[in-house]
Design a binder for these strands. Structure first.
Lengths: 118, 118
DNA sequence: ATTAGTAGTATACAAAAGGTTAGTGATAAC
DNA sequence: GTTATCACTAACCTTTTGTATACTACTAAT
């Protein structure tokens, strides 16, 4: 009944799922830009929005919610008038550094390759 | 005039662009699954389609075209009846291994974290 | 009194990604 | 003679993602 001993079926599926999970978190048009904006020091909603060219309030709002859910960002509300909301990156966000490094170096290498081939 | 010596503005933008390029190539719902199918040994169009649960011919066709453009896959046509088309992963696809490793280990770690916190 | 700033939400719309169905034309199996 | 296989493609539909604009309710400055 086709019982191969190659590491294909299960290990590979797990691997794919993990990769999918990772891409789910950092994929999309804005996730990484928001993280970078926060790393650069922006803290408040409008401040973040101004620092990211082209993002709308609706999208920024939903991105921040997801980042909070995934533990990259903490939302701190300072009541008073006007209400000030502060977004803080967590230490957990640093665990992404390995991923980001390999992505950026591969991306740069790949772009160079395409340029040379053109 | 706010002249910080942090690596923010330019290096950061380049980095983001590179990451964007990388995600463009391996992002999306199917790219990696197609690559994995080819690594597992599938070679022909319908064979690949059968090995990836849920992918349609239309989508597979466009994914393969993009993978070919990016140098991950070579398309070899064996004329005759019936026509057989063979897709072969290139050595270049191996350059992705670092990216895939860091993505999968981070993804697995992240899922565990979410599970523990629930 | 108008304007700007605080942090968003509501609504409507556009664009992109992906899915479904059917079909090509030749051949070979049933 | 109907059905299946080969490798797709065209047409159309749905879902997801992103954009634009207006609005909330309060305050402080002009």
């Amino acid at each position: 009944m086709n019982r191969t001993i190659s590491p294909t079926s299960e290990a590979c599926t797990n691997r794919l799922t993990s990769i999918g999970d990772a891409l789910y978190v950092i994929g999309g048009k804005w996730k990484l830009r928001v993280i970078v904006a926060l790393l650069e020091g922006s803290k408040r909603f409008n401040e973040i929005q101004r620092s990211i060219d082209g993002i709308s309030a609706r999208v920024l709002s939903s991105e921040l919610k997801e980042l909070e859910l995934n533990g990259f960002v903490t939302r701190i509300v300072h009541t008073g008038t006007p209400i000030v909301v502060e977004y803080q990156i967590t230490e957990y966000a640093d665990t992404l550094s390995g991923v980001l490094n390999s992505l950026s170096s591969w991306g740069a290498m790949h772009r160079d390759k395409l340029r040379r081939e053109r």
